[in-house]
Design a protein around this nucleic acid. Structure first.
Lengths: 116, 116, 116, 116
DNA sequence: TTTT
DNA sequence: TTTT
C-alpha cells in the first residue's frame, strides 16, 4: 500500500532483544518493542520521563538486520505501515493488536551510519 | 514529541460518523475509524478489496473540523502520532488500544481544496 | 535510498500539463510543477494566497500515470526523494536545480480513490 | 503549511560547520549542507559512495541547537518544508534555490539521545 | 522493556 | 503555472 496512504516512521530504542521466528519457508520474522522517550521538567523542576512503546514486526531481510544488529537498547529508525489484526488469547478472549510492519530499518548511533 | 521520532500519516475514508465528546473544559474530542482501501485482482481476475482500519483521535480545533466536515465516507488525510494506552473493559479484562492522535487533518475530494 | 534518510511528501495541484519525454529505451519521463496553496487573512481581513511551487520528476510507470490522469489543475499526492543536479544553460551559466523524484503518485479528488 | 501538503525528512551528516547569521531582531538563522551518503558495490566489487547534498535553513531555537551541537560531520535528522526562492547573483543572473526549512532537528549518534 |  |  502506498506510503501516501499509510506511513509510519519511528526513531527510538529497542526494549528487549527482538524475538526471532524462523518460518518453515526459511524466512525470518522479528518482533520487538521500540521506545520513544521524551524528557521534560515539571513545575517543580523535576525531570520527568514519558515513554511511548510501539510493537514492530519485520520480515525477511529486515528481520535479519534486526537479529544481527538491533539488540536490546540499540537506537534505530523504522519506516513502515500501520497494521491491526485480531486473535483469541488463551482464555478465548478476542484481542486486537496494532503493529508497525517495518519496510525499512536504519541503524543509528553506529560508526559509519549503518544505512541499509 | 518530534515528528522524526514518532510520525504517522494516513489518507483514507471515514468509516462511520465520528463520535464527538464535549469535555467539561469546553474542548471537543473526535474519535473515528479510517479505512485504507486497496484493490487488486486475484489470479482469477476477480477484483479483491483489502481494507486496513485505523482508530483516530483528534482534539480541540481538529475535532471541530472533523465534526463539521468529516462525516461517514469522506476522504481525508491525517498526520499525527502513534499512541497506545490500556483500560479495563466492562468484564474487567485489561485491553490495550493503539490510536493515531491527529495533529493535522486535510479534507480531500472536496471542491475547494479543504486545506487547514 | 532509505525513506528514513531522504523522504518528501507533497499534496497539491498540477500547474501545467506535464511534459512527457519518451526515452529511447521506451521508458517515459514526466516532469511538471506542483503547487502548494495556502490561504490566510491579513490584518485588514483580506484573503491572501501564498503558493509554493515544486518541480516533480516521475519515471516509468509513475510517468504513465501522470500522463494519463494528472493534467493541469489536478490534485495529486507525491511521495519521493529530494535530488539536486547541475547543468549549463544556453549561455554557459552553471545552474543548479532541485527536484522531487516521485516514487509514488496518488490521484485525489477522484471518485473511487485513485490509489496506485 | 500542513505536513500533509509539504513535508520533508532527512537523516544525514552536516557537510561544513553551519553558517550562523544573527538577525537584528536577535533571532538566529543557521544555513548548512546535509549529506545523504549511500554505499554500494559496483560490478567489480568496488565500494562506491554516492552522496546527495541538501541545503537546510533553520530559524530561532532550531538555529541555536544547530549552532551548539551540529558541527561539521555530525549526524542529524531534519524535518521540515520544501521551499524555493529566487535572487540575483553578483553578476545580475537570476538564480533559483530550493531549501529545506527545518521545523525540527534531532541529534543522532550522540551519547544521551539528543532529542529535542 | 529501552534510553538519558 | 494550479487551486480556492
Amino acid at each position: 500500500m502506498s506510503t501516501l496512504k499509510n506511513h509510519v516512521q519511528l526513531i527510538g530504542n529497542v526494549g528487549q532483544d527482538p524475538q526471532i521466528t524462523n518460518l518453515e519457508s526459511g524466512k525470518k520474522v522479528a518482533r520487538f518493542s521500540l521506545a520513544n522517550n521524551e524528557f521534560y521538567k515539571n513545575e517543580k523542576g523535576e525531570k520527568i520521563q514519558n515513554t511511548e512503546w510501539h510493537t514492530i514486526v519485520a520480515w525477511g531481510k529486515n528481520a535479519e538486520i534486526i537479529e544481527k544488529y538491533a539488540g536490546k537498547g540499540k537506537e534505530i529508525g523504522v519506516a513502515g505501515k500501520l497494521k491491526s489484526r485480531s486473535y483469541e488469547d488463551k482464555d478465548g478472549v478476542k484481542r486486537y493488536v496494532t503493529e508497525v510492519e517495518a519496510n525499512e530499518i536504519l541503524l543509528l548511533g553506529v560508526k559509519n551510519g549503518g544505512s541499509q
